[in-house]
Computed example of a mutant assay.
Amino acid sequence: MQDAHYYWNYLPLLLQILAAVALAGGMVAASWLIGRRRNTRAKLDAYECGIPVEGDTRGRFSVGFYMVAMLFILFDVEAVFMLPWAVIYRELPKIAGSRLFGFWEMLVYLGFVAVGIFYVWKKGILDWSQDKGDL
Rank of each mutant, 00 (worst) to 15 (best):
R41K: 08
V53A: 15
F75E: 09
K94W: 15
W128Y: 03
E91P: 03
A79L: 13
S129D: 10
M70C: 03
K94V: 07
D76W: 14
V87R: 05
I73C: 11
K43A: 14
F103H: 06
W128H: 11
V80R: 08
A22E: 03
A42N: 09
I34K: 11
T57K: 09
Y66W: 13
C49D: 15
Y10T: 06
M82D: 01
L92P: 02
E54H: 13
V28C: 01
Y47H: 14
Y6G: 04
P52D: 08
F61H: 05
L71D: 04
L100G: 07
V108H: 08
L135K: 12
N39V: 07
S98L: 07
R38L: 04
V87T: 03
V53D: 10
V113L: 04
W128I: 09
L13T: 05
G111T: 15
D134A: 14
W128V: 14
L23D: 01
K43W: 10
P52N: 04
A30R: 09
A29F: 05
L18A: 13
A29N: 00
V80K: 07
Y89E: 13
R60A: 15
K94S: 14
G64N: 07
F103L: 11
E48M: 10
G111N: 11
L18V: 08
V120P: 01
V87D: 00
N9L: 12
L100R: 11
L107G: 05
G133N: 08
L13C: 11
K132C: 06
F103N: 03
Q16D: 11
G26E: 00
G50V: 08
N9D: 02
I34V: 15
E48P: 02
V53Y: 05
R60W: 09
F101G: 02
K122I: 09
V115H: 01
L92M: 15
A29D: 00
R36S: 03
I95Q: 11
R38F: 03
E78Q: 08
R58H: 11
Y10F: 15
L135R: 13
L14Y: 15
V28F: 09
E91I: 10
L33W: 11
C49E: 15
N39T: 10
I73G: 06
R37G: 07
A96Q: 08
A20E: 06
L14R: 12
L15M: 10
A19Q: 12
K94Q: 13
R60P: 00
V77H: 11
R58Q: 14
A46L: 13
F81S: 06
Q130P: 00
A22T: 10
P84W: 06
L71T: 07
P93A: 06
Y66I: 00
K43C: 04
V108L: 12
L44Q: 10
K123R: 14
N39L: 14
I34N: 04
F75G: 02
F72K: 05
A69R: 11
I73E: 10
P52G: 05
G124E: 03
T40G: 05
F112A: 06
F75W: 13
S98P: 03
A69H: 11
V120M: 07
W128A: 06
R38M: 05
F81D: 00
L74G: 06
M67Q: 15
N9I: 02
G133P: 00
V108D: 06
R38I: 01
A19R: 12
A29E: 01
I88L: 13
Q16G: 07
V77I: 13
V28M: 07
L33S: 03
A19L: 13
S98G: 03
V53Q: 14
F112E: 02
